[in-house]
Simulated scan of single mutants.
Amino acid sequence: MYLWRAVDHEGEILESFVTKARDKDAAPRFMKKAMKRHGSPTTIVTDGLRLYKAAMTEIGIREKQEVGRWANNRVENSHLPFRRRKRAMQRFRRMKTLQKFASVHANTCNHFCVQRHLVDRQTYKERRSAGLAY
């Protein structure tokens, strides 16, 4: 099973989608679904996998793709909490449970994870102290 995730420029997870295959048919389905819900992006950062290029050509947004050595870091770092949780659960056995968990995890992670780069140090310390007080 493959988990496709769309992440915005601030690191928030926009969309999670599970497929059985990671191929040219699954990529456009995911991109169309994400664009239908969140609109057309100005740029799309991907890794160097060739199926992204083919899928974007099929959709007609090939010129918006960016591929770089470290450009994909925000997406890769957004996977870390999910991978940690998946390891604790000792993998998923069904696609349906993975899809449910991925969508719920994305919503709770976006809500409770403080985006450190968006607030100054003093505000961050106050919020952290208030959260730990309970």
Rank of each mutant, 00 (worst) to 15 (best):
Val18Met: 05
Asp23Trp: 11
Arg94Val: 06
Leu14Phe: 01
Tyr134Asn: 15
Asn110Ala: 09
Met1Ser: 14
Arg128Thr: 14
Thr57Gly: 13
Phe30Glu: 08
Lys36Leu: 04
Gln122Thr: 14
Ala71Leu: 12
Ala21Arg: 15
Phe92Pro: 14
Gln99Val: 06
Asp47Phe: 08
Phe82Asn: 02
His117Asp: 08
Arg50Ile: 07
Gly131Asp: 08
His111Ile: 02
Arg83Ile: 11
Asn73Tyr: 00
Pro41Lys: 02
Asp47Gln: 05
Glu10Asn: 12
His111Ser: 07
Asn73Pro: 00
Thr123Lys: 13
Tyr2Pro: 01
Arg62Cys: 04
His105Gly: 02
Ala130Gly: 14
Lys96Met: 05
Phe92Thr: 12
Arg91Asn: 11
Arg50Lys: 15
Tyr124Ile: 07
Ala133Pro: 03
Arg50Thr: 12
Gly11Met: 10
Val75Glu: 08
Pro28His: 08
Asn72Cys: 10
Ser103Gly: 07
Thr43Ala: 04
Arg116Gln: 09
Gly11Ser: 10
Glu126Pro: 00
Met31Pro: 01
Met56Trp: 01
Gln99Cys: 07
Asp47Val: 08
Cys113Val: 13
Lys33Tyr: 06
Lys53Gln: 13
His79Asn: 15
Thr123Glu: 15
Arg37His: 02
Ala102His: 07
Arg128Asn: 03
Thr57Ile: 08
Ile44Asp: 13
Ile61Val: 12
Lys24Cys: 09
Arg127Ser: 07
Val7His: 02
Phe112His: 12
Leu51Glu: 12
Ala88Tyr: 07
Glu12Trp: 09
Phe92Val: 13
Pro41Gly: 08
Arg37Ile: 14
Ala26Ile: 02
Met1Glu: 10
Asn72Trp: 07
Asn107Pro: 00
Arg5Val: 10
Gln90Ser: 11
Lys53Met: 04
Thr19Ala: 12
Asn72Glu: 06
Phe82Cys: 05
Val18Gly: 08
Arg5Leu: 03
Asn73Ala: 02
Arg74Gln: 06
Phe92Lys: 14
Gln122Ser: 13
Gln115Gly: 11
Ala55Ile: 05
Ser40Glu: 04
Ile61Thr: 03
Met1Ala: 14
Met56Ser: 06
Met95Val: 03
Leu3Phe: 04
Trp4Gln: 02
Tyr124Trp: 10
Ala54Met: 07
Val18Lys: 03
Leu51Pro: 01
Arg94Tyr: 10
Glu66Pro: 00
Asn110Gln: 06
Arg87Met: 11
Trp4Met: 05
Val67His: 01
Val75His: 13
Arg116Leu: 05
His105Lys: 01
Arg84Pro: 00
Leu51His: 05
Tyr52Trp: 04
Phe92Trp: 15
Ala71Tyr: 04
His117Arg: 13
Trp4Asp: 03
Lys32Asp: 03
Arg94Thr: 15
Leu3Met: 03
Cys113Arg: 15
Asp120Ile: 05
Asp25His: 13
Arg29Lys: 15
Ala55Gln: 06
Arg37Pro: 00
Ala88Asp: 08
Thr123Trp: 09
His111Val: 06
Lys53Tyr: 00
Lys64Ile: 00
Ser78His: 04
Arg87Ser: 11
Lys36Asp: 05
Phe112Trp: 13
Val7Tyr: 02
Lys33Ser: 11
Met89Asn: 11
Glu58Cys: 09
Tyr2Asp: 07
Gly68Met: 05
Gly48Trp: 02
Ala71Phe: 06
Lys86His: 10
Ala102Asn: 07
Thr19Ser: 12
Asp120Glu: 15
Thr43Glu: 10
